[in-house]
C-alpha cells in the first residue's frame, strides 16, 4: 500500500548471499474446506536457485506454489497447519501485509493473463500500484524488465499497442516481465510453458537460466525434461504428500524412492 520507491532499489548483496533455507516450509498441511490438499510438507528452498515441483495432476503442486504468495487466500474456506517462512519471517505473520508479501513474491501463471492495456502499462503495473509516478523510473523499469524477459527487441516499437495483440509466447514473456518489474525476490511460475510451442518454451527456459542470477525461482512443470533442464533442485509430490526432495541430478539419476523412479520413467502420472 505505502508508495515507497525504496523497494525498487537493489538489496545489499550480502543479504542475498546464498541462504540455504531462504524459503522454508515446515510440516505444512493445507485444506480446501474439508479436503486436505497438502500433507506434512517440509522443504527448504535456497536463495537464487531454481526449484521444480513435479508430480501427477492434482497432487498439490499449484496449491503449494499459490500458498507461497498467499494467492489461495482468495478461495473460501481454506485452512492450514505448519508454517512457511521467507528469509526467516513467517508469511502468516499478522504484522506482515499480504500486499507487501506479494510485492516480494512475483507470480507467472499457467495461462498468460495480460491486462487489456498497453504493453507498457502491463509491465509497469506493479510499480504504478506502488505509487510510482516518475516517468523516468517507469520507463527504465519497463525497458529493463522487457530486456530481462527477452521481449524488448520484439515490442520496443509497439509499447503503446495493446498487449492483447501479442502472440502467445510473447504474452507469456510479457507476464514474466510484469512479474519482475518491481524486482521481487522470488518468482513463482505455475507451468509457464504448458500452452506454448517448443520455440517459445525454449526462450522461456533460457530466460529462467538468466533470471536465477537475481531471483529465487519456484517452477511447477509437467515436463520431466523441463525440470531436468532448468532446475537445481526438484521436489516430487504425490497425492498431496512430498515423496522426495533433492538435487535435480539425484532425483533424475538416482532417486531414493520407488514412486519417484516410477513417475520419472513414465510408468504412471
Amino acid at each position: 500500500m505505502n508508495p515507497s520507491t525504496s523497494r525498487i532499489q537493489v538489496r545489499p548483496s550480502a543479504e542475498r548471499e546464498g541462504r540455504k533455507d531462504y524459503i522454508s516450509i515446515r510440516d505444512y498441511g493445507f485444506w480446501y474446506g474439508q479436503k486436505k490438499a497438502l500433507d506434512a510438507i517440509s522443504l527448504d528452498i535456497p536463495e537464487r536457485q531454481v526449484v521444480a515441483f513435479i508430480g501427477p495432476s492434482g497432487c498439490g503442486k499449484s496449491t503449494l506454489l499459490r500458498n507461497l504468495n498467499r494467492m489461495n487466500d482468495l478461495v473460501d474456506g481454506i485452512s492450514h497447519e505448519g508454517d512457511i517462512t521467507i528469509n526467516g519471517r513467517s508469511i502468516y505473520d499478522p504484522g506482515l501485509e499480504v500486499i507487501s508479501l506479494r510485492r516480494r513474491v512475483g507470480m507467472v501463471f499457467q495461462k498468460s493473463n495480460p491486462f487489456p492495456k498497453s504493453v507498457y502499462e502491463n509491465v509497469v503495473f506493479a510499480l504504478r500500484v506502488m505509487g510510482v509516478r516518475d516517468r523516468s523510473i517507469l520507463d527504465e523499469a519497463c525497458e529493463t524488465s522487457l530486456r530481462k524477459a527477452a521481449l524488448w527487441d520484439e515490442v520496443k516499437d509497439r509499447l503503446q499497442d495493446s498487449a492483447l495483440g501479442l502472440s502467445g509466447g510473447q504474452m507469456q514473456r510479457l507476464c514474466i516481465a510484469r512479474a519482475i518489474a518491481n524486482r521481487p525476490e522470488i518468482l513463482l511460475m505455475d507451468e509457464p510453458c504448458s500452452a506454448l510451442d517448443p520455440i517459445a518454451t525454449g526462450k522461456i527456459e533460457e530466460l529462467i537460466h538468466e533470471l536465477k542470477e537475481q531471483f529465487t525461482i519456484v517452477i511447477v512443470t509437467h515436463s520431466m525434461q523441463q525440470a531436468a533442464r532448468v532446475s537445481d533442485r526438484t521436489a516430487f509430490f504425490y497425492l498431496g504428500k512430498q515423496i522426495e526432495y533433492d538435487t535435480t541430478e539425484k532425483i533424475f539419476m538416482n532417486p531414493s524412492q520407488a514412486q519417484t523412479e516410477a513417475y520419472i520413467s513414465g510408468r504412471f502420472g
Binding site: N113, F115, P116, A126
Partner: peptide, 27 residues
C-alpha cells in the same frame, strides 16, 4: 472478468481497491 486478470493484479501487489479500479471496472 476472467479470473486470471484478477489474480494477476493481486499477484502484482495491487490492493483489492486498486484491482477493482484499474482492472475490473475498465474491463
Amino acid at each position: 472478468v476472467p479470473r486470471g486478470m484478477r489474480e494477476a493484479s493481486l499477484a502484482s501487489g495491487a490492493s483489492k481497491w486498486q484491482t477493482i479500479r484499474d482492472i475490473l471496472l475498465p474491463a
